[in-house]
Every structure is written in structure tokens, then in C-alpha cells.
Simulated assay, not measured.
Amino acid sequence: MHNFEERGAAAPPRSAIGAAIAEFRRTPLLALIVFVPVVILLERVSPEAHTLLFLLSVVAIVPLAALLSRATEAVAAKTGDAVGGLLNATLGNLTELVISLAALQAGQYLLVKASIAGAIVTNTLFMLGGAFLVGGLKHHLQEFNRVNARFQASLLFLATIAILVPSLISEVDRAPAAAFSQQLSLGLAILLIIVYALGMLFSLRTHRELFASSGHAEEEEKPWPLPVGTVVLIVVTLLVAMVSEIFVGSVQVAAQHLGMTPAFVGFIVVALVGGAAEMTSAFSAARANRLDLSVSIALGSAAQIALFVAPVLVLVSYFVGPAPMSLQFWPGAVAMMLVATMAATLLSNGGRAAWYAGVMALAVYAIFGLTLFLLPPGAPS
């Protein structure tokens, strides 16, 4: 009793401060949080400084994404596998979702579609390839659960086919009107969400034993208490919304000044910034010889975007956008997503990885990035 009272009286302040310090040491990216108030104040004082606002908002989103990731873990850890899986599907890519919603409301559909395609390609090539490289440089050969990897790659392939169909129809037959593309995209969005929900049921309930080894991330670090995670989740989501609005409002002018197009910004910049926290976790896990967790993060996040985030954006566009958004992407984006999915399937087929596999995946990603920067695609119809 005495020990309990003694700890209860002295522990909370010290515990809170110590936890904050430990969190900053564990995630150095959180030091960039100082740029959040800076970019918000700058937008109030000098709204015409588009290039500076763009650069600062990019930097400010990185620590917010890291905090969102930790808060999501804290909330999901207290709800059980089924609800936790749903929360991860909803909140795991919340940064990309909020940025896309801001762009959607502004009618920048090319930026939205580029960010969707870029997030899928970045997770399957850059994040997965980087994990293979970082882990392989320290460990000669690493193993992971190939059942889980194949499952996520199959979901990605299904989503890519759903995106490929509207694009192919628009190229093969010019007769269908825009209304047809919107109706088809709406039906496909609902179908993809149903498939993803059934996929969670399959992996979390009926056949959960097949995915048992796909990473227990909380073994080395305890999740935050539920009240802390909930408060952080709400506050950081509001901050992400504010910074995303600044980002979207400055991206067009800033991209022109920096020699970039909205397609390149969405495909490369938004994807890398939005996934910074997940990349840090994936790379750290690979260095700790937990490549199974890295693969689960990379491919699982890509599957969430393809089967959950993209369809949700299509549905939400009927309410917040100037017009409904379709799943019709420009041919180059479809080709890149298809190649990335095939590469992920080939890389994860054996259940083993070495550093050179990461080099090959990163090389493919570099080819895509260089192509978009030097020869950006035209806006899809």
C-alpha cells in the first residue's frame, strides 16, 4: 500500500515528462513539430509566399504523421483485433486521406489521383525495397511470412484491376460518357470496400493463424494509454487538416516555381511525406531483424490505400468535391501501379530477402520518379 501511494504521488509528473523525452528520442522526426505553428502563422502573415508555405507544410506534416501513427496504435491496441483492424484501416493512412480530402474539396483531382497512385507505388517499392536494403546490410539473409505477403499482394492486384478497367474502357471505346465512368467508379468503390472488409474478416477471424507471425510491434514499446492516444489523435488530426489546407492552397504556384507538376508532387512528395512515420517503423524493424513486420507495414498500408482510402475518396467526392471523382487514372499511373504490384509479388514470393532485392525495388521506384519529373503526364479526362 505504501509503495502504491508513494508511486501514485510522485510518478505521474515524472512519468509524463520522461515519456515525452523517451518518445522524442525514439522518433527524432518529432523535433520537426516546431514547423507546425511556424507554417500556420506564416500563412496568416504572408499568404502569398506559396513556395515557402509549400516547403514548410511538407516538413510540418512529417512529425504529425508520426504522432498519428503512434496515436492510432494506442487506440487500436485497446479495442481488440477486429475493431483494431478496422481502426487501422480507417486511421493508418489518415495523413494521406486528410491531404487528399483537402485537394478533393479544392477540385484538384489530378493531385488526389497522383497521391493515391504514388502512395501505392511508394509503399510497395520504396518502403519495401528500403526495408530489404536496410535490413540486408546488417543481416545476411532475412525471412518473413510469405502467406501474409502474398495475401496483401493479391489484394493490391485486385485493386489495380479495378482501377485498370475504367481507364481501359475510356481508351478503347470513346462512346461512354462521363456519367458512365462515374457510375462504374461508384460501383467499383463499393465493391472494393466490401472486399477489404471481407479480407479483414479472413485475416483477423476465420484464418488468423496464417497471419500470426506478421509482427507484434508492441513487444519492445508499450502503446500510449487510451485517453492520451485519443486526445492526441483528435488534436493532431485537426492540425493535419489545417496544414493540409495550406499545402493544397500553395502547391500549384510552388510546383511551378520549383519546376514540378501536381502529378509529381502527389506521386512522389505527398506519398513520401505522408508515409514518413510508417517508413521509419518499417526500416527500424528491418534493422532489428523483424522483416516480417516491415513487409506487413509496407504491403498492408498499400492495400489499405488501394482498397479503402481510394474508394472512400470516390464516395466522399459526391459530397465535398465540385464533381464526383472517378477511378479513371492516366495510363502511366495505371502501368506504374501494375508494375509495382507485380514487383511486390515477385519480391515476396520466396519469403526471404537480401539487400540486393531492395536495390532492385528502389531502382524501379527511381525510374518512375525520374520519368514523372522529366516527362509528367497530362491530366486524365
Rank of each mutant, 00 (worst) to 15 (best):
L101K: 09
V147W: 12
P324V: 04
A177F: 06
R26A: 15
Y318V: 05
R205N: 15
I246A: 02
F151E: 14
L239I: 07
L137N: 00
A263P: 07
P376Q: 06
M242K: 12
A212I: 05
S381L: 12
I17L: 13
M336C: 08
V45F: 15
L210A: 10
I305G: 00
L128K: 01
I367N: 10
A263E: 09
A276I: 11
E96L: 08
L338E: 02
L375I: 13
G129Q: 02
I40T: 09
V121R: 01
L188D: 00
K113F: 00
V334R: 05
V195F: 11
Y196I: 11
T72S: 09
L156V: 07
S46L: 14
A114Q: 03
V59Q: 11
P13D: 03
L156D: 00
P223A: 08
R146F: 08
G84S: 05
G8N: 15
T371D: 14
T341S: 15
T345Q: 10
I246L: 01
S203P: 01
A310F: 06
L188N: 02
A11H: 14
A20D: 05
A363M: 09
R290S: 11
L370S: 12
E219D: 09
G378D: 14
A114D: 05
V334S: 05
A254H: 01
L192V: 00
P331I: 08
A276G: 07
A286P: 03
I305P: 00
R174W: 11
L192F: 08
L307C: 10
E219N: 13
H139Q: 12
L64C: 10
P262Q: 03
I61S: 01
L191V: 03
L68D: 07
A353C: 12
M279T: 15
N88S: 15
G332N: 06
A298Y: 03
A103W: 00
A31L: 15
A282T: 11
S181E: 14
A65V: 10
A286Q: 03
L168Q: 01
A119S: 11
L56R: 04
P311Y: 04
Q182P: 09
R70M: 12
F54Q: 04
L198F: 12
A175D: 14
G18R: 07
L52W: 07
L158N: 02
S181T: 13
L128R: 08
V75R: 04
K138T: 14
P311G: 05
L141N: 13
A117V: 03
R150T: 12
N3L: 14
V320I: 15
S69R: 10
F329N: 00
V147D: 12
L258M: 11
N123A: 06
W330K: 07
A10D: 15
E143V: 14
A333W: 04
V248A: 05
T261I: 03
D173C: 04
L86C: 12
R208N: 06
L64S: 07
A255W: 00
E219M: 12
